Amino acid sequence: MITSFFKKSKSINFIIVFFIALLALLIGKLGVINSTLDFNFFVKLAGLVAIVFGSILLLNFIVNKNSLSQKDNYEMLLFSLFLLLITPTTQHTNVLISNLFILLALRRLISLRTPKNTKEKLFDAAFWIGIAALFYFWSVLFFALIILSLILFSDGNLRHWIIPFLGILTVFVLSVAVSIIFYDNYFQFIDQSFSVSFDFSTYNSLSYIIAITLLFSFGAWSSMFYLNNIKKKKKAFRASFTTIIFAAIIAFLLVIIVPSKNGSEFLFLFAPLAIIITNYIEVIHEKWFKEIFLGVLIFAPFILLML
């Protein structure tokens, strides 16, 4: 019943997804609010809503444009549910903006499967990752995804390997120039906190333990089938599917090493994980198991809200 409802693209699906995302935003922001519900609060909230909704629509575009699923909108539903599962992901504006730019970079990298405008795609991907790093430094790890993508798409053109570094250099030069002009400081816009931390004590709460266990258990289980099914895909699309699994691995490493573990770091994992789990849901043959699998993912965030 649940799976058949989202099987086809319907406007009601988008409404449900946006409602869940909006609920996650409201719970996240109201949980840390230190001021009254004034006009400024609602202006900022409207901006965050635009960023989150934009991220969801961009994820849906990436998936449909590159045939990463059967166009059943599961990835949008899962992304919004993950936001509700770990609401701190909606509390930090800089992380939300950074993740949006990472999605823009991912869009360009996956499109490398077609040889058209390769130089522009590589430059854009590096540029967006550089911008993302200005908002959240450790998102720079996704630069490795460009190198991995070049390997996956078997690109032996030396100029293509140089272009991503030019994209990052462009962001660096522009940020330094703006810093000098407006702040009389070379590195005002560059986050210089390059430290790492392996202190996971922040996650030592029942809600975090349940949410993280759910994410990684469902993600790991789905990944095994995802990897096994890549070789069954058309040759032209295999590299794109492999790019998603590498994006998930990089996001996982980011979660492990970031110095400030406040929950927002999981946001970078949501998009690739949503795609991976969507692909698994689509290949489940047992109707009852598919319903239970998706049902747990749907109801778990709402149950956690009551804890």
Rank of each mutant, 00 (worst) to 15 (best):
L45N: 02
F225D: 07
G31W: 12
S217E: 06
L273P: 02
I275P: 01
K8M: 06
Q188A: 11
L112M: 10
S201L: 14
A220C: 10
T213Y: 13
S67F: 14
F101Q: 01
K44I: 09
S154Q: 14
F187D: 00
S154T: 14
I181T: 09
F123L: 09
L166F: 15
L25W: 09
S205F: 14
L169Y: 14
G167R: 10
D199I: 11
I51Y: 07
S217G: 08
L148E: 04
S222C: 10
P272A: 02
S139T: 15
L152Q: 05
P115E: 02
L145D: 04
L37I: 10
T278M: 07
H160S: 13
K8P: 00
L145I: 13
I15H: 05
F135Y: 15
A105Q: 03
D199Q: 09
F143R: 03
K287N: 04
F143V: 14
N279E: 00
A177Q: 12
N40M: 11
L78T: 03
T36N: 07
A46R: 03
I20T: 00
L77S: 01
K235P: 06
S111I: 05
P259N: 04
K121S: 07
T93M: 08
I281S: 01
D72Y: 13
L85W: 07
L304E: 00
H160I: 13
I181K: 08
I250G: 03
W138E: 07
S67Q: 08
A211Q: 01
N228P: 08
S193F: 15
N40F: 15
P88S: 04
L166Y: 15
K232H: 13
T36H: 10
I181F: 14
F165N: 09
P301T: 04
V49M: 05
F135W: 14
N13Q: 04
Y226N: 08
T87C: 01
F101V: 08
L59D: 00
V255Q: 06
D124M: 05
L26C: 04
I257H: 08
S197R: 10
I180N: 02
I51D: 00
K261Q: 13
I62S: 00
I163L: 12
I102D: 02
I168G: 05
R238K: 11
I249T: 10
A247K: 03
L297P: 05
A247H: 02
K7C: 06
A239T: 08
A247M: 09
K261T: 11
Y280V: 05
N94P: 11
Q188L: 07
